[in-house]
Design a protein around this nucleic acid. Structure first.
Lengths: 151, 151
DNA sequence: CTTCATGCAAAACATTTGCAGCTGG
DNA sequence: CCAGCTGCAAATGTTTTGCATGAAG
């Protein structure tokens, strides 16, 4: 598993493009715009935010296409989706692999803390990010014993 | 599957009831039914599932009331909400505090693993639960430096 | 009795889908 | 060319809300 931890937008862009090409997906201006935003964006934009930004450089793009592109990149493992109870999902095209987040419960700003290890982790992350950590979310996803058998 | 801290449904029920009473919220049969399910349910039911179960013991209950009751208990800190990208939220009235979960990506079954400590954690949880862990989610929620100041 | 809670239906969302027409390779 | 994309609008699914009626305290 290749992990690009360095935030080089240019490089990420190329990686995503290469993946699309290798799977014979077409390179359209709309997809390019979405790709560029996901690769360059330091934060964790929502679909709506991506849409708004795309429109400034390619005004005819529709929200549906943004969603379709995100879904495609998600399937290709090039985008990480962060789901929230209120239905305001956020996306990370920089680091499309599982990693911890600090999320402001007030303004929704999301940061990636430098990871260490979970009880002390909490305090350490609070210290390193300046966030006052109020709660956390740690979920493991996989196949339960029943579903493993059914494979 | 062993649960080292399995709560006593009876006790949880009382705790929630006490909280409602202390805040002067009315005890209605509908609320009692939802409370009973949340306290007794070992799993992590969705609103719809709670609704279906409630209807068997109190048929006139509406889905809206179930949502209102869940929201109330959530506000009171008596229920933990687990949000998912596809909008299928799940609720835990047994342990309304942050704790790790193992989630089957196929059948959506959710289990609480006995927690230990995050890299070895992954393997350990996989071993203890029988799940094949494919990915995880670890988010810390709190106030970012800017929002701390604004308080 | 006086709130507050309920239940219904409609609204509010974010996201997905069907399909006619457009376009990248 | 033509399979695969796009954009529109309508559909979807979950959660919320407005309001008249009903019941808890």
């Amino acid at each position: 598993m290749t992990r690009n931890d360095s935030a080089d937008p240019e490089k990420r862009m190329e990686q995503m493009l290469a993946k699309l090409k290798s799977r014979q997906f077409r390179i359209t201006p709309q997809r390019l715009a979405v790709l560029r935003i996901l690769a360059a964006e330091e934060g964790h934009p929502s679909a709506e935010e991506i849409y708004e930004t795309v429109k400034t450089e390619f005004p005819t793009t529709s929200l549906a296409t943004v969603y379709k592109t995100i879904a495609l990149l998600k399937d290709l493992g090039e985008v990480l989706e962060l789901g929230f109870p209120d239905g305001s999902n956020r996306y990370d095209g920089n680091k499309p692999f599982p990693h911890p987040h600090v999320i402001c419960t007030k303004c929704k700003k999301i940061m990636d803390p430098p990871l260490v290890s979970l009880d002390a982790l909490r305090d350490e992350i609070g210290r390193q990010t300046g966030y006052r950590i109020l709660h956390h979310r740690l979920d493991f996803f996989g196949l339960c014993p029943t579903c493993r058998e059914a494979e």
